[in-house]
Amino acid sequence: MSGCSCCSPSETKAEGGSGAPLDLAALSFPELTPVRDRLVDALSGLDPAAAMAALGLSERQADEVERNARLRSSPTTPAIRRYTGVLYDALDYASFTRGQRARAGRRLAVASALFGVVRADDPIPAYRLSGGTVLPGVGGLRGVWRKDLEKTLSTADELVVDLRSGPYAALAAVPHAITVKVVTAGGAAVSHFNKAHKGRLAAALACAPREPGTARGLVSIASAAGLRLVPVGPKALELVVD
């Protein structure tokens, strides 16, 4: 595995797509296929009442249960287009040039409760499942993913910047990754706009002409994009915002 940034997914996802139905064998990191297959079966096979309870959905969100039931037959679209929300708005993939999109396809990975980790270009269907979910008949996802996913993530042979949120970071560690915390100039943690700032950083790293090989390289790329990264430890950076 090589790459630059590992982002969290989003609870909200774009509908539709023009790609063929889900083919687990076509996704990156094929060693994760057995776990993916098990989770797709478990999620798509839940009866509506059990699904709504496990996923914390209301009656108004019943369509998300129906969407999960069609996991193996609904159309797919690249992961970078499937996930939506604050981080992906800030990433602004639609504005990338062709060359930048090619770099993003190589560099960006997305942590996923259903698929473990996928590359930006991997074709996936719309679904609803979060990292903290306890699936009936399966259990907590950390217990499901930890062993296999950590083995995959440990194969990273280039610098990895871990931008995952708590529930997804808990699924598996990324050995040797550099973590980023968003803070104010006074050192207080930023919560409300945390994802937006991480999205801008992910865009800067994805679009840079060259991949950084060190934390110093990360700081330089961020600075060129108008972002301030400050080293606070051997494998920790703070993204300082106003």
Rank of each mutant, 00 (worst) to 15 (best):
L163D: 11
G131I: 01
K195I: 15
I124A: 08
V232M: 06
V118P: 05
A90N: 02
T133N: 11
M52K: 15
A94F: 00
E11G: 05
T133S: 10
V180P: 11
L163A: 12
V110L: 09
R72E: 00
V117P: 05
P78D: 04
C4G: 11
P167E: 10
F29E: 04
L149I: 10
K195N: 15
A203H: 00
P234R: 06
T179R: 14
V241W: 03
R101P: 02
L229Q: 07
G143S: 11
E59K: 00
V40Q: 09
V182C: 11
E64Q: 14
P167D: 09
R146L: 11
A49N: 14
L227S: 08
A94L: 00
G17K: 04
A20Q: 14
D47I: 11
A169K: 10
S220Q: 02
K147T: 09
P34K: 04
H192I: 01
G19I: 01
T97Y: 12
Y88I: 00
P234A: 03
E211C: 04
L39M: 13
V110H: 05
V174R: 03
P34A: 07
G143R: 10
V240F: 01
D242Y: 00
S112Y: 02
A50T: 13
G226M: 05
G105N: 09
S2A: 13
N68Q: 14
A90D: 03
T179K: 13
V65C: 10
L201V: 10
L163K: 09
A104V: 10
A215T: 13
H197P: 07
R101S: 05
K198L: 10
L163M: 12
V182M: 04
G140K: 07
R67Q: 03
A62T: 11
L227E: 05
A102E: 14
R210P: 03
V161E: 07
Y168K: 04
Q100M: 11
A177F: 15
T184A: 02
L87M: 14
A206H: 01
R60D: 06
S8L: 02
T214C: 04
A189V: 07
A225D: 05
E158D: 14
R106V: 00
L141H: 12
M52F: 14
K147L: 07
V138N: 06
F115Q: 01
L229C: 05
S28K: 01
V183D: 11
F96M: 12
T133Q: 11
L39C: 13
F193D: 01
I221D: 06
A109L: 12
D23Q: 15
S223Q: 10
E11H: 07
A196F: 13
N68E: 10
A170Q: 08
A51C: 14
V40K: 12
A120F: 04
L129H: 15
A42W: 13
V182R: 08
L22E: 10
A189T: 13
N68G: 15
L71M: 02
E31N: 03
E238N: 12
I80M: 03
Y88D: 00
L205V: 08
T76M: 05
Y168I: 07
L22D: 13
P212H: 08
G16C: 10
S58G: 13
L91M: 14
P234V: 09
P48I: 12
R36E: 01
G137W: 06
P123L: 01
P48W: 10
T77R: 05
A222T: 06
V174H: 02
L205Y: 06
L71A: 03
P75M: 03
